Simulated assay, not measured.
Amino acid sequence: MDADNAPASNFDDVLSEVAKYGVVTIRKAYGNWKSPTLKPWEELLHEHAIQPVQQYDLTKGKNASDIALVIDAMDVMYTKQIDVMCFVSSDSDFTPLVTRVLAEGKVVLGFGERKTPSPFVNACSKFLFLDRNDKEKPSNTNKTKTIKSDTKLIHLLRQAIEATEEEDGWAGLGPVGSHISNKTSFDSRNYGFKNLSSLFKAIDLFEMKRGPGNSYFVRDKRKNKST
């Protein structure tokens, strides 16, 4: 945890997400603990068994915590039996570290504020915004308008359907989600929806139908018009 560049609020979301992947064996927070700005983090240390790592600001404008975090992360990667690494930060300086960890076959989870630069967000296997808009509980109508205006997101969804669809244009939601996860750190919760099916249902550019059991199929409505 880069305590100098990440909010302590909603830390329960971090623990809840990483618990899906297994037991969290190492918990470290880096920062200048002499600074009053880290008070919110300090209150979480004992509650969540987090080890604070003190790094003084040796030079004005330079963050020694970043270097210490990178060194420790590399040590852990090569000396411990781990499958997942999690970074809590809104600082894009960790992007090279993330890509290096991915190259070693590890899953990388990222957490930070919405202001986090896209290179760091996109480098992670999954990135969750701690100040995402589902905390504000906007109306479904407003969320839908926002999503439909996000051309990059719509293009991503359409590409995933096209890559996994059958001849009739229908694609299993599971394969669609896997295809998206293989390309980017996308998470439907960052858009205010609990899961991918809820996201698709809210956008009238797509149609959905039930499959066997609890499965779903999704199709681009443009495909429907052409068949």
Results as ranks from 00 to 15, higher is better:
57 D>E: 15
146 T>K: 08
116 T>K: 05
71 I>A: 03
134 D>P: 07
112 G>Y: 09
130 L>G: 01
37 T>W: 07
107 V>H: 08
145 K>H: 13
80 K>Y: 08
64 A>S: 15
130 L>W: 06
152 K>D: 09
117 P>S: 10
68 A>G: 11
123 A>E: 07
59 T>M: 04
70 V>Q: 02
94 F>C: 05
57 D>L: 09
110 G>A: 11
138 P>I: 04
75 D>G: 09
100 R>A: 08
62 K>F: 05
82 I>K: 00
99 T>I: 08
39 K>Q: 14
35 S>D: 13
121 V>W: 01
116 T>Q: 03
56 Y>T: 06
72 D>Q: 06
106 K>G: 04
59 T>I: 05
147 I>Q: 07
47 E>P: 10
64 A>G: 11
100 R>I: 01
54 Q>K: 09
85 M>R: 05
44 L>I: 01
59 T>C: 10
110 G>L: 09
64 A>Q: 13
71 I>Q: 00
116 T>I: 10
145 K>A: 15
124 C>M: 13
114 R>G: 12
79 T>Q: 12
62 K>L: 04
66 D>Q: 02
131 D>F: 14
108 V>D: 00
143 K>Q: 14
83 D>N: 07
99 T>E: 15
114 R>Q: 12
94 F>K: 00
102 L>A: 12
39 K>E: 12
51 Q>Y: 01
44 L>P: 00
131 D>Y: 06
57 D>C: 03
125 S>C: 04
141 T>F: 11
135 K>Q: 11
150 D>C: 06
72 D>P: 04
75 D>V: 05
71 I>E: 03
63 N>F: 07
59 T>L: 08
42 E>Y: 04
70 V>R: 06
74 M>D: 02
108 V>L: 13
80 K>C: 00
125 S>D: 15
52 P>A: 02
152 K>Q: 04
130 L>N: 10
150 D>M: 04
152 K>E: 08
55 Q>I: 09
47 E>F: 10
82 I>V: 10
49 A>H: 14
138 P>T: 11
97 L>G: 09
119 P>T: 11
111 F>L: 12
66 D>G: 06
58 L>A: 08
94 F>W: 07
73 A>Y: 13
140 N>I: 15
127 F>L: 07
68 A>C: 03
41 W>T: 08
40 P>I: 11
101 V>H: 02
100 R>C: 00
38 L>Q: 05
87 F>N: 12
63 N>L: 02
143 K>W: 04
79 T>Y: 00
98 V>Y: 05
104 E>V: 07
57 D>Q: 15
65 S>N: 01
148 K>F: 00
70 V>S: 00
128 L>Q: 12
112 G>Q: 10
48 H>F: 12
81 Q>D: 11
120 F>N: 07
108 V>C: 08
52 P>R: 02
111 F>Q: 14
53 V>F: 11
39 K>W: 00
153 L>M: 06
62 K>R: 09
55 Q>R: 10
73 A>V: 06
43 E>T: 12
82 I>A: 05
103 A>E: 14
89 S>V: 04
69 L>Y: 03
79 T>C: 02
85 M>E: 10
147 I>T: 09
45 L>K: 08
127 F>D: 14
119 P>G: 14
147 I>W: 03
132 R>M: 02
100 R>V: 00
57 D>A: 15
107 V>R: 13
142 N>R: 15
